[in-house]
Write a protein that binds this DNA or RNA. Structure first.
Length: 291
DNA sequence: TGATCAGAATCACTTACCTCA
DNA sequence: TATGAGGTAAGTGATTCTGAT
C-alpha cells in the first residue's frame, strides 16, 4: 500500500464528535482463544477468570487515534489486518504516539521521513528508532491542549531509545487505591485519574491493564495451589478406599457372608396375581393372596 | 429484521527498560 | 564491573460487543 493511500484510509481522519455510547462489557469472561494459529494447544485452552461484569458508560468522544498500522507493508499491498479495519492506524514503531483517550487532540498527521520499510513489525528496536534509510516516523500533532508531558514524551521518543516510565510511590498508591474500588475505569474516571497523577490517560489505562493481568496471574497461582491440595486430598481418599476394598476382600475370602449360610429359598410367580413369593408361604395365604 | 461495518474496550502475549542481588 | 533474574510499562495483534447504516 502506498503511503498516500494509507493516509486516505485512516490517518487524515480528523475531528470526531462526542458520542454517548453505552458499553456493556463482560470482564474476565471465560473464553477460549481459538483463533491465533500461533498459539500452543495450552494457550488455546487458556481460560480467563470469571470475576465480574460491569456496565460502563463511555463518553469518550471517539478520540479516534490512529491506532494500528502494522503488519508487513509492501508497496501496493494491503495491511495484514482485516481490510475492514484498516481505518485504524497506529504505532508502527515506538516513535508513534498512541493515545486514543486524548480526546483533545485535533488531528493526527503523518510525517514521512523516508520510504517505508518492508516488514515493519519485524524491525528491531534499533532499526525502529534509528535514523537510517527506510525508517518512517509518525508524529501525532496535538492541539494546544496537549500537556507538556506529552510534548516531553514526543521529544524523548524522537530522541532515541524508549525511556521507561517509573511511577512514583505516591502514584502507585493512588492507582492501587483506585484499583481496589474498581478494576476497570470508564473514560471519565481514567481522565480524572490521569489528571490527578499527571499522567496520560493511556498510561493509566495501561497500568490498569497490567494490574488486571497481575491479579489474574496471582489468582491462577492460588487456584493452582488449591487444585494441587484438592488433588492430594483425593489421592489420599482414594488410597484409603482402596485399602478398605482390600480389607473387605480379605474378609470375604476368610468367611462366606451370612446370607450364603441361609437355606435356599425358591421364589415363584403367582400366575394370577403375578406376585413373587415363597411357595410354602403362598400356600398358607393363597386364599387371600390370589383371588 | 437481519447483515455488515466501524469503533471502542479489552485481552494474551511480547518486548524492552530498569533495578537489584 | 558484569550479568542474569524479576518486575513492569508499553507495544502488538487479536476478539468481542455495540450502535449505526
Amino acid at each position: 500500500m502506498a503511503f498516500d493511500d494509507l493516509s486516505n484510509t485512516g490517518l487524515s481522519l480528523g475531528l470526531f464528535s462526542q458520542l454517548e455510547q453505552p458499553k456493556k462489557q463482560q470482564y474476565f469472561q471465560l473464553h477460549h482463544h481459538t483463533k491465533k494459529a500461533i498459539f500452543s494447544p495450552d494457550q488455546l485452552t487458556n481460560l480467563s477468570l470469571a470475576l465480574c461484569s460491569d456496565q460502563v458508560t463511555s463518553k469518550n468522544g471517539l478520540s479516534f487515534f490512529a491506532r494500528k498500522v502494522h503488519g508487513e507493508f509492501e508497496s501496493g499491498t494491503v495491511l495484514n489486518r482485516q481490510a475492514s479495519s484498516i481505518s485504524v492506524v497506529s504505532s508502527i514503531s515506538s516513535s508513534v504516539k498512541r493515545d486514543r483517550d486524548a480526546s483533545n487532540y485535533e488531528d493526527v498527521k503523518i510525517t514521512i521521513v523516508n520510504q517505508m520499510k518492508p516488514n515493519i513489525s519485524g524491525m528491531s528496536h534499533s532499526e525502529e528508532t534509528g535514523s537510517g534509510e527506510g525508517v518512517m516516523k509518525i508524529k501525532s500533532v496535538y492541539n494546544s491542549k496537549a500537556t507538556s508531558h506529552d510534548d516531553r514524551e514526543i521529544e524523548e521518543e524522537e530522541g532515541g531509545a524508549r525511556k521507561k516510565l517509573r511511577l512514583t510511590k505516591q502514584q502507585s498508591l493512588i492507582l492501587e487505591d483506585n484499583f481496589k474500588e474498581h478494576i476497570t475505569l470508564n473514560p471519565k474516571q481514567k481522565q480524572a485519574l490521569a489528571k490527578q497523577l499527571n499522567l496520560r490517560a493511556r498510561q493509566v489505562e495501561v497500568w490498569f491493564q497490567n494490574r488486571r493481568a497481575r491479579t489474574k496471574l496471582k489468582q491462577t497461582e492460588v487456584d493452582c495451589e488449591l487444585l494441587k491440595k484438592f488433588c492430594k486430598t483425593l489421592t489420599d481418599e482414594n488410597r484409603k478406599l482402596q485399602k478398605e476394598v482390600q480389607e473387605l476382600k480379605a474378609l470375604k475370602r476368610a468367611a462366606p457372608p451370612f446370607y450364603k449360610q441361609l437355606p435356599a429359598v425358591t421364589l415363584s410367580i403367582c400366575p394370577s396375581c403375578e406376585r413373587a413369593g415363597e411357595p410354602a408361604l403362598r400356600q398358607q395365604t393363597s386364599s387371600k393372596f390370589c383371588k
